[in-house]
Structures are given as structure tokens and as C-alpha cells.
Amino acid sequence: MFPRAAGDGFADLPPSVRALHLRQGRQRYAGQVEVERGKGWLARLFAAATRLPPAGRGPLLVEIDADARGERWVRHIGGRRMPSRLWFRDGLLCEQLGLARFGFRLDVEGGALAWRVARVHALGIPLPLSWFGEVRARESEQDGRYRFDVRAVLPGVGLLVHYRGWLDVG
């Protein structure tokens, strides 16, 4: 799924990023995460609707169950579960996260995998793409470790979440 979504550049990604996205079956990865959350009531409402993690710093456990139809991810952060489902359709990597369904374009840039929002639906209703210009994710490798950096800022709302850290992919 990820090689199709990222195209020819997938082969140029660092080993830990490729390994995380090529394995089939059930995998568990441990690491560390730091989470910043927006403070306003709208930010809290959006975060609850998409099951975003709580603010804090500490251990992270990610469980991925991958097969030919897609992947189910469960991120365990700060005593909470953040589940999502991913699949590939119409040239986009799609993710159901709480009440929101995203379609992402994946690009390989400077040895990293960059995710950019291409479409969003909430409760089946399409939302303006212009709202999501500051929603980005990046996967890379540093010192042999898989690294991630996810930041979501919405106009009129501000920061929803910024979480970053690492996983031991091995």
C-alpha cells in the first residue's frame, strides 16, 4: 500500500521507514513521543472527534495489523488508545481517524516520507481543503531509528496537535 502511494521514490526511503511500511501481519513497535495540544475549546472538540492523543511526554506503543486490504493502527499514548484504519484508493492513502476520513498524497522529499492532505470528510460531509493546508506528517530516520513528526493547525482554531518521536522498528 505505501509503495503504491509513494511511487518510485519509496525505494529511496531509509531502511526503518521502508521496513515499517512493508511488513505484513501484526507488528508491535515501542518508542517515545512528545505531544503538544491546542488549548481552545474548538481545538479540544476537534481533537476529541479525531481521538488525538493527550499532551505529555513518555512511552509510545504502536500496533499495526497489515494485510492486502489495508492496515489497522493503534497508538497507545499517555494511557489512551488512538486507533485508525488505512487503505489505498484513487491514488491516495486514506485514513479513518475518529469521525474524520482523510485522503493523503505521499511524496518522498530529502529522504523522508511527507504526507499532505488531499481531501477530508467528517461524518461523510466533504470539508474545504483550504482548512487543512497546515496539517502535515513526516516520517524519516535518524541514528537508525524511525522518526515521525505530525502537526495539525486549523485556521481560526490554531494548533490541534503536534506529536513527534521515534520507534524502534528493528
Score class of each variant (00 low, 15 high):
residue 78 G to P: 05
residue 58 G to Y: 01
residue 111 G to I: 08
residue 109 E to C: 10
residue 92 L to N: 07
residue 65 D to G: 10
residue 103 G to I: 04
residue 89 R to A: 15
residue 40 G to N: 13
residue 53 P to R: 06
residue 97 L to F: 09
residue 88 F to M: 11
residue 66 A to Y: 04
residue 101 R to Y: 01
residue 46 F to R: 00
residue 48 A to L: 08
residue 101 R to G: 06
residue 112 A to P: 00
residue 50 T to G: 15
residue 107 D to T: 11
residue 74 V to E: 02
residue 65 D to T: 12
residue 71 E to D: 13
residue 66 A to G: 06
residue 81 R to Q: 15
residue 85 R to V: 13
residue 99 L to R: 14
residue 53 P to Y: 01
residue 109 E to V: 14
residue 78 G to W: 04
residue 87 W to V: 10
residue 54 P to M: 06
residue 73 W to Y: 05
residue 50 T to I: 12
residue 123 L to Y: 12
residue 95 E to C: 00
residue 123 L to Q: 10
residue 74 V to Q: 02
residue 108 V to C: 02
residue 84 S to N: 13
residue 58 G to R: 07
residue 42 L to T: 09
residue 97 L to K: 11
residue 49 A to D: 14
residue 92 L to E: 11
residue 40 G to M: 05
residue 81 R to Y: 03
residue 52 L to A: 15
residue 74 V to D: 06
residue 109 E to N: 01
residue 110 G to Y: 00
residue 40 G to W: 01
residue 106 L to C: 02
residue 100 A to L: 12
residue 51 R to H: 13
residue 90 D to Q: 08
residue 104 F to H: 02
residue 61 L to S: 13
residue 104 F to G: 01
residue 89 R to L: 12
residue 70 G to H: 05
residue 110 G to N: 01
residue 57 R to D: 11
residue 85 R to I: 10
residue 43 A to N: 07
residue 46 F to V: 15
residue 59 P to I: 07
residue 111 G to Q: 08
residue 104 F to P: 02
residue 67 D to T: 07
residue 48 A to F: 07
residue 67 D to N: 09
residue 57 R to N: 12
residue 110 G to C: 02
residue 62 V to A: 12
residue 94 C to K: 02
residue 107 D to F: 08
residue 115 W to K: 09
residue 50 T to E: 14
residue 61 L to T: 15
residue 79 G to F: 08
residue 41 W to C: 05
residue 105 R to I: 00
residue 91 G to N: 02
residue 41 W to F: 09
residue 72 R to K: 11
residue 98 G to H: 03
residue 86 L to H: 14
residue 102 F to G: 09
residue 114 A to H: 15
residue 85 R to S: 11
residue 97 L to T: 13
residue 103 G to A: 08
residue 88 F to L: 14
residue 110 G to H: 01
residue 51 R to C: 12
residue 88 F to I: 06
residue 88 F to A: 12
residue 125 I to D: 01
residue 95 E to A: 07
residue 107 D to L: 07
residue 63 E to A: 10
residue 125 I to Y: 04
residue 82 M to S: 15
residue 94 C to Q: 11
residue 103 G to P: 05
residue 113 L to K: 05
residue 79 G to D: 07
